[in-house]
Design a protein around this nucleic acid. Structure first.
Lengths: 153, 153, 153, 153
DNA sequence: TTTT
DNA sequence: TTTT
């Protein structure tokens, strides 16, 4: 159809470390599990309530997949832009299932890291400045190198 | 979690007429089935290809539900803004299923009619100017009345 | 700054035909003037009111510039995605002026044509099917050709 | 015009503390100055470059204005959703000027605080957990009170 | 199941 | 004027 738009914008936190698969071509495909949540105060009880929604994100965009692999981990806060896609599959019993994912296709979508720590629940979180510069993708010093051209943030 | 965003933006066409349920309170809840699609030219075969994605939209926002009920029908083109929500349910065999929908909560979301054919809930779609003005929500003449205050487009 | 987003989404109509300039490289740069408007009913007078906002859009994205040049004209309805940019300039008297535009940079932004007529106020609007297919970018028949690979809708 | 959308989405940092004016009605109107920026590596020189864009945001939405007043300050990172609006005015010499702003109208727009330092209107930014919970709008303990119902994050 |  |  001409004239259609299919866009999802999420700001949320990773519930676990990114999962990386490789295509036959060697390109990484990264899956993220992202939580968004809303809080409100119940009109009746006066209690503060919270509802969390979990989103499955799949990154085929090669540059963004590499950024996700290198810089994201459990707890990271990200801005994500992708499109909705529903896949049909069969579980082990042969039952039909549908899964809806936010997909960042090749050359499409956006990913922006919103925290400068890079991590929340990491045991080994180093806080030194060099590490920080790497995590923010602005390190031009030694080491980041071939990824450096593509860092989109 | 503080600081999260969960937003879907769709521009697409209705695959069928809106479905209207009533809450116990009498408020309408409208379900839409919306198609978005992409076309591209296959690099190898040179063929033009198309992939259509179907989206389930549920409108709890009362004003927008009434607009959807009155003005949308199969084929209508709309701009929709809502949030992702995944529901768990059981089919008749007791198997667990998940369905992801774009939800327009009470007082939230947006719906804008993008074609000017518009007017629905009507077997006799007239093309006259008055009808058009109603379909565009700018009719101030007789008849539209109590909905008139709320028309969001 | 790491972690920033600058995004504008417009759905509106062209107030005049696109203006096309050429860079030294020969690439087209297309400027659009787009109207969005809101209508509401005045609480006191009960009158229906309307306010129109005009937006200046500049398309550096080469593929989208060519689509705009070929398919858009006064009255066309479009979905546009770009970023805000404010330019400082001097008028003939030397006074400082600022202009804020929605810019679609090279390889960035989106443009989707939302009407299938392509035009509103054209004297020569042909309505034949072939013309229609071209206007919607899905014509694979004769003539569209070298643009055909890039048509983004 | 029916069927239009005018939406701006920003993620950026405040360049200075919010400015608060009061309407005759006593409602606060808050102005923000927000920076977004892009960095890239120059193809030729290999240098890392950065371009910052500054945005003027005006919040008429009463709840969001109060949140901005209470929780934002220079350096805060926010997600903002509003609409473009261009105002004409005259400088002291009588020259015509235009200013384009991102406006959050009454009952419209969104504001989400993205950093957890957050808490403002306070010279003594404490880092304790209770303070953090308030800054994140999830504090249900004593003290936040009348704003508490409206906190949108 | 839409639209082109 | 921010942020990295």
């Amino acid at each position: 159809m001409s004239g259609s738009v299919n866009k999802v914008i999420l700001v949320g936190n990773l519930g676990r470390d990114p999962e990386v698969r490789r295509l036959n071509s060697g390109e990484p495909v990264v899956s993220l599990r992202i939580a968004t949540s809303e809080t409100w105060k119940d009109k009746n009880s006066g209690e503060r309530k919270e509802k969390t929604e979990w989103h499955s994100v799949v990154i085929f965009n090669e540059n963004l997949a590499r950024v996700a692999e290198q810089y994201l981990k459990k707890g990271s806060k990200v801005y994500i832009e992708g499109q909705l896609q529903t896949r049909k599959w069969q579980d082990q019993s042969g039952a039909e299932k549908y899964t809806t994912e936010i997909v960042l296709q090749r050359f499409r979508g956006e990913l922006t890291i919103l925290d400068s720590r890079g991590s929340a629940s990491d045991d080994h979180q180093r806080g030194d400045a060099a590490d920080q510069r790497r995590a923010d993708g602005i390190g031009s010093g030694g080491g980041l190198n071939d990824l450096d051209d593509d860092i989109p943030f």
